[in-house]
Amino acid sequence: MGKTIDIIKTKRKVSDSVKENMKAFNKIKRQILKSLETEEKTVPQIAQEIDLPLDVVTYHLMTLQKYGNIEAGEVDDMDEFYFYKLKK
């Protein structure tokens, strides 16, 4: 089977918002993964480190977890926040 992607490319254009969204996601993804390289962290810790709103971090972190990049570890002493770590 040929590459059908080339056929659709002649008919459709990718919108700017899709491109921007992709860029933003990949940037945040890199930041989160980098932040977790050294040690496992909670959402507020990551958010503080990479200076992004908490809910943005939660959303992307959970997406990364869904796709198997990271996993949840233990919960902190206060039973409030889980630590997240890179999945080997």
Partner: peptide
């Protein structure tokens, strides 16, 4: 489920 437990979407805290 989307998260590893029931968590707050804002900061991933375990709600109590």
């Amino acid at each position: 489920r989307p998260y590893n437990n029931v968590l707050r979407p804002k900061d991933g805290k375990v709600p109590d």
